[in-house]
Design a protein around this nucleic acid. Sequence first.
DNA 1: TTGTACGCGTTATCAT
DNA 2: ATGATAACGCGTACAA
Lengths: 346, 346
Amino acid sequence: MITLQQIADEAGVSKMTVSNVINGRFDKVSNQKIELIQGIIEKNHYVPNLSARSLVKHQSRMIALLVNAFVLDYNVFKDPYISRLFGEIETAIRATGYYTIVQTVDNIKDSITLLRNWNVDGAIFLTPQKEEDMELLRRQAICPMVFLDNYYQSDSHFLSVNIDDYKGGYIATKHLLLNGHRKIAFASYFGEKSDVISTRLKGYSDALREFGISESCIIDTFTRYEDGMSIGRDIANHKYDITAVFATSDHLALGIIKGCSLNGCIVPNDLSVIGFDDLDLCTISTPELTTVAQDVHDKAEETVKLLLRAISEDEVSRAPITCDVELKVRQTVQNISSGNQQGLKS
Amino acid sequence: MITLQQIADEAGVSKMTVSNVINGRFDKVSNQKIELIQGIIEKNHYVPNLSARSLVKHQSRMIALLVNAFVLDYNVFKDPYISRLFGEIETAIRATGYYTIVQTVDNIKDSITLLRNWNVDGAIFLTPQKEEDMELLRRQAICPMVFLDNYYQSDSHFLSVNIDDYKGGYIATKHLLLNGHRKIAFASYFGEKSDVISTRLKGYSDALREFGISESCIIDTFTRYEDGMSIGRDIANHKYDITAVFATSDHLALGIIKGCSLNGCIVPNDLSVIGFDDLDLCTISTPELTTVAQDVHDKAEETVKLLLRAISEDEVSRAPITCDVELKVRQTVQNISSGNQQGLKS
DNA sequence: TTGTACGCGTTATCAT
DNA sequence: ATGATAACGCGTACAA
């Protein structure tokens, strides 16, 4: 491990001169010395010790990526949405020259400790946080932070990037309505208060209202594939009086389709289904899933760009960024408006 | 940002005493002072500056996770195997109190710089590395490293954790043979030399030989879903004279099944298929995919355990660790040994 | 261009 | 036994 001092000794100059060369302050060093020093650096594969640099500069060029830990013993990175988002963000961070330190969080205090331990320059929370944890963060953490899919009040060091959940709920429901459906279920997890879900629900309700439909059908369920299967079975067994389901997760939607088919109800003939997220799975499955797509790549880039601005400018517009969504029409919605009969045989 | 010195001032003692309390060296401090100091630490939410600590101790309590970057513009973390492995390893690392720094690699020099920049204590490479990069690492990097799915020669600071690829190839092929198949294709990517693939191929060949079959059918293809679809189409169109395929990736296998079905060839009736990895997809798809499963959780734990031993003991058995694999029998293999007719209608 | 102090925590030495 | 003092690790800032 060669150090600045050793290079300085070998070149017969002071540490400062070497430091100036390394940091491109060439106007402060004569040309011959620049070449001499650069040669020595090359030869010895010198790499600066960033701990030392961090110590004096009170910054680290590290960004923390925090992801809520296992839920129900389920490795979060098995969630294709999370892992894809993670990959896109890591890539965006690397492109800026920052380092990425990652931690799954099961106790927010550990994350706060991490941020302060390493003088982290900024943090990104990939998953929604509880309100009390947000309060703690606001009080104890010191760096700018970006929260994804979080509707908490933002300020200049406490930023948000969301998708247009309202529009997502609205266009999915509207698409079903335009295809003649009138009895449409909204399937999601309501077990804990979530602004993401309630916003999508609002889009759903408004679309229904636009068509003069006042009654809605809410299905409260976990959103994994297996949970979908059991809902699908219920649907096939006429537990709900519906011709279509809008599910707030692709896995849930796919499970519903499978559960239905196992019980003699075929999508889209007997039931139309729309999912949310546009995972790769949507085009791998048969039939291919119609779904609300979010542009994860764009979301990741916006997130990193916003965070970097907050780090360097320290005054940033606090308006949350909202990324667009769009409907991907595929094979799980059937038009039943005229002649096309659909519905469960009774 | 409160520092050791400030705590010492407030307590009316020296930095040393505070440091001793923080590091649990209670035998060197009187009980009253311990309580006093701990109180101050609590009150001020003191967190040590790990850059400073790293500077003097020449270690960082950081472990680097390196993953080969985008291939063909494809976000690696979209690969369910990689992201799951990543999640399991991160969790194992966090459980030990180490921090995880992650970087996708497209140039090994960047990774070496990372390791030295931060005095990283150890590194884990999730994806196979090129030989010349391994040589560079051996020469320039200083910490213990574990390579996953890599058959490179190991030594006490250059370790390997693999799965039993030979057994995987063997049991999959044997299962097909026992179900009456004699014309079995091996589908994989041979574009670049890979010990993982050649080892699986050896298992395949040996199983065939055991049944007196000397001729094999090798299909060389990329291993994504889309690539599988085009192979599936070829199979349905009688390009190959086979009744079964062993594909070295689940995505490839699933694509083959889809490509077949799009062209009137139904799995398992007309073709039997076995995949590799046991992704969640295997049970989501219809029919459910028979596949060779690896225990990713176990692999992750072994990896981290091995690395920590190499870090602390600095003499470690250099024998590569081999994790077991097993066949998950599901719905894509049909028994054609007696009476059960199978094969493409011609 | 260079000397010197500094940032923060640890280790080693010395005093009571 | 307890505690204090000093030097150290590595790079940066500022005065000289």
